[in-house]
Design a protein around this nucleic acid. Structure first.
Length: 489
RNA sequence: GGUCUGAUGGCCGAGUGGCUAGGCACAGCUCUGCAAAAGCUGCUACAGCAGUUCGAAUCUGCUUCAGACCUCCA
């Protein structure tokens, strides 16, 4: 079985392209991170897990990856009509906290949730507030290139002028004419020449707390500037992958391309990778609709739509069971299905220990790795990877049952391959194997030995009492032909 | 209104021309003192209509429906 090459869907070309790094073995990847003004919700898990998988897989393929994911703690305007009030500042004032206090709190919340989901920490996690100077410098470059104008202390990007030389809309497939006729006119845009122009630097109003000095005014950077400035700073003028949610495609990523192209004279990212949304009742889960469920609510089961709590690994597995470019519809029953599937998968992995090697193998273990690679190489098709693993869980069960045979060598290969794919690449954890279970283990084994003696003496009363009391302690006794096994519920 | 995407079995979700996706649920069976658990087996769907083809879930056209973006959003 031959192994293919990694292919990624590039939004720029609207097709799958072979991934060829610009400077192999190094790979640069930039992904838009969260705006830290609210608790992380299920929607945040999608890009985090998707690009975590890409990060892990690229490393598995032998690349040296620098993965940059930003923290937006400044910038995003509430809306253009909002006198330049910044989201962070608005929330801060409501709660009478320092803006940085709010940003820090939610950054920590985000980190905690990501850690629980098994999302590896990026190589660099730059904060927008820590890169104001870089952003001012970037605005200057655009200014010097002639694609910006000043109006009332704010600097705007001149989309029309840019579009004369380049194509504004190349990523989202729009043309300026369409944008002109189809952009709603909003109030409070008097400063701009055209409604489709966007702010590079925004003058702060009197009451605006988050502000920095600049050559133009005391203010703050426009809401697309941080990604251009920070990706350039840490990954260079040109880098391999730029990721983010599909909802950021326009205007955010379109504006980023315009900014970088205006300032540098060329595009910055080679592959634009966008994950699709998680939906709920067929509609996008997001802040604007208010139909989101926070990760903490999921972990604790505290939401009217949840029948029970779901572990972080169940959430991760749920996300991985769909290809990243498809919408994924949330429901409590879908999560329950994911939970049981994951449980079955982990039990299969545990069952590896019970296999007794033979002199020959009736199966071809090397096919597992090749099949997984082929699925993964096809634009990160994790659901197919998982289905292949399930096929092998079936095989493991047959091996345990002696319906198939495997040599000691092949068994070691099988264990190793499954470990790589399940734990290293998919990033799953076996949550039932905790350290407390290890300490508990000899104690439970002792109880089961006593019960086994009782059973041998047909002392069903004692044997059932031991079983019932263990069950009430959350330990499920599983009788087998030779003795008994157990697991924590 | 513009741009784009999608419609797969009870549910979630792969699959781009012919061969079983997978998981969950469900049914039967095996194991078992009983139960539980586990395993095994079964379950053949592609929105509608027309066309291309020896053959279409997969290609083309039309229709219907849904969603995303066009405003902060992962």
């Amino acid at each position: 079985m031959e192994t293919t090459k990694l292919v990624l869907y590039n939004t720029l070309s609207r097709q799958k392209e072979e991934f060829v790094p610009m400077h192999a073995p190094s790979v640069g990847m930039y992904v838009c991170g969260p705006t830290v003004y609210g608790d992380p919700h299920l929607g945040h898990a999608r890009p985090a897990v998707t690009f975590d998988i890409l990060f892990r897989y690229l490393k598995h393929l032998g690349y040296k990856v620098r993965y940059v994911r930003n923290i937006t703690d400044v910038g995003h305007l509430e809306n253009d009509a909002d006198e330049g009030e910044d989201k962070i500042a608005k929330k801060a004032r409501l709660e009478e906290l320092e803006p940085m206090e709010v940003a820090h709190y939610y950054t920590e919340r985000y980190h905690d949730a990501m850690r629980a989901l098994g999302v590896l920490t990026p190589s660099i996690e730059p904060h927008a507030s820590g890169h104001i100077i870089e952003q001012i410098e970037f605005v200057k470059k655009i200014w010097d290139a002639g694609f910006a104008y000043e109006s009332n202390g704010s600097i705007y990007f001149d989309v029309e002028k840019y579009n004369e030389k380049y194509h504004y809309g190349k990523l989202s497939g729009r043309n300026l004419d369409d944008i002109v006729t189809n952009t709603r006119s909003l109030d409070g845009q008097d400063d701009k020449k055209h409604s489709y122009d966007f702010a590079l630097w925004k003058k702060a109003s009197k009451e605006h707390i988050m502000r920095w000095p600049s050559p133009w005014s005391d203010g703050f950077p426009g809401w697309h500037m941080e990604c251009s400035a920070m990706s350039t700073k840490y990954l260079g003028e040109q880098f391999d992958i730029h990721g983010g949610g599909m909802d950021l495609m326009f205007p955010h990523h379109e504006c980023e391309i315009a900014q970088s192209t205006a300032a540098l004279g060329h595009d910055s990212a080679k592959y634009w990778v966008h994950n699709n949304m998680i939906t709920i009742n067929g509609k996008k889960m997001g802040k604007s609709l208010g139909n989101f469920i926070t990760l903490e609510q999921l972990f604790k089961g505290e939401h009217e739509l949840l029948t029970k709590p779901f572990s972080p690994m169940t959430i991760r597995f749920f996300v991985l069971q769909a290809q990243y470019r498809s919408t994924l519809d949330f429901s409590s029953s879908a999560l329950e299905a994911a939970e049981k599937g994951l449980d079955r998968l982990m039990k299969g992995v545990d069952a590896l220990k019970k296999i007794k090697p033979s002199k020959s193998s009736s199966i071809k273990v090397e096919e597992l790795d090749a099949a997984c690679h082929n699925a993964m190489n096809d634009d990160l098709n994790t659901p197919v990877v998982i289905s292949i693993i399930f096929d092998w869980i079936h095989t493991i069960n047959q091996l345990v049952d002696s319906q198939q045979t495997i040599t000691e060598e092949d068994l070691a290969l099988l264990k190793n391959t499954l470990n790589v794919w399940i734990f290293d690449i998919l990033g799953l954890r076996n949550e039932k194997q905790s350290s407390s279970a290890d300490k508990l283990s000899p104690v439970v084994d002792m109880m089961l030995e006593i019960r086994q003696k009782a059973k041998a003496e047909k002392n069903w009363a004692l044997s059932d009492e031991i079983r019932n009391r263990l069950t009430s302690l959350g330990i499920r006794v599983k009788d087998r032909k030779d003795g008994a096994d157990w697991e924590i519920e």
